[in-house]
């Protein structure tokens, strides 16, 4: 058994024991011997599958929009100091606003459709990508630029053939951090707004009906697995695409 799985199995064992021995009341902490089968049967339920797909899709769309907004913005801010100084002031005041605080406002303004959760997730996902892109340009090795210029590369060529490739690993690190953010915000919006289907909504309904703690826990574990898979997948992609790069951007 791979050593990494031992930890997970250990968690399930402790959880099972805690629940069976009633250290934690088992009607709240349903043992994994019930939760895991529930999760499997939920995955066979078309209603739940739709919810999962709706959540993941909303997060992916939000992430794509965030990349489309934040990467060009980051490139501009990273290369034009005057714009950067002005913009960073605004960013400093905007960024601390927790995206989840906007949920009630967004629900009243945009309604409870999927565009609400996507808009909020974009807001949350923009920052890590933006900051990592700016950081990437700061870290651009001047020697690489000089080398390219010495070989007669034009300014545009320097941007597309030197700056962008060396910024790419940092951007991907930003995307990986943003993916977790986007998922968290989408799920939060679903928890709070009645309208659209999604994992958050599904868990909220199971929870409010009181006796479905197994479904609540199964949904939570599944959301964790999705987040874990997204993170691991993006890390793998990073290693494949950028095996040449030693620094990975700044991870958290």
């Amino acid at each position: 058994m791979p050593s990494g799985l031992v930890g997970m199995v250990g968690l399930f064992a402790v959880w099972e024991a805690a629940s069976r021995s009633e250290v934690v009341p088992s009607n709240y902490l349903v043992p994994p011997s019930i939760v895991l089968p529930t999760m499997v049967s939920m995955l066979g339920d078309i209603e739940f599958l739709r919810a999962v797909i709706a959540t993941v899709l909303a997060a992916v769309i939000a992430l794509a929009i965030a990349v489309a907004v934040a990467v060009p913005a980051g490139l501009v801010l990273g290369s034009v100091p005057a714009v950067r100084r002005a913009a960073m002031t605004l960013v400093e005041f905007l960024r601390p606003i927790p995206s989840v605080a906007l949920i009630p406002l967004a629900m009243m303004t945009f309604g409870t459709g999927p565009e609400t959760k996507i808009t909020l997730a974009v807001y949350a996902a923009v920052w890590p990508i933006l900051f990592n892109t700016i950081y990437a340009l700061d870290e651009l090795d001047p020697l690489h630029v000089d080398t390219a210029r010495a070989f007669g590369t034009s300014r545009v060529g320097v941007l597309t053939r030197v700056a962008l490739p060396s910024a790419a690993p940092f951007v991907l690190t930003g995307v990986r951090l943003s993916a977790a953010m986007a998922l968290a915000v989408v799920v939060s919006t679903e928890l709070l707004s009645g309208g659209t289907p999604g994992i958050g909504r599904y868990i909220m309904v199971a929870n409010s009906s009181g006796s479905y703690m197994d479904e609540v826990l199964a949904g939570t574990v599944l959301a964790g697995l999705i987040g874990y898979a997204a993170n691991a997948g993006l890390e793998r992609l990073h290693r494949r695409l950028f095996s040449w790069s030693t620094p990975k951007g700044v991870d958290q």
Partner: peptide
Amino acid sequence: YLGPLFAFMRSIPPPLLVPFFVA
């Protein structure tokens, strides 16, 4: 042994913990 477990725990969207702790 524990690294993947911690990474999994971090991957659970924190707001989703609310329903569990409410119960």
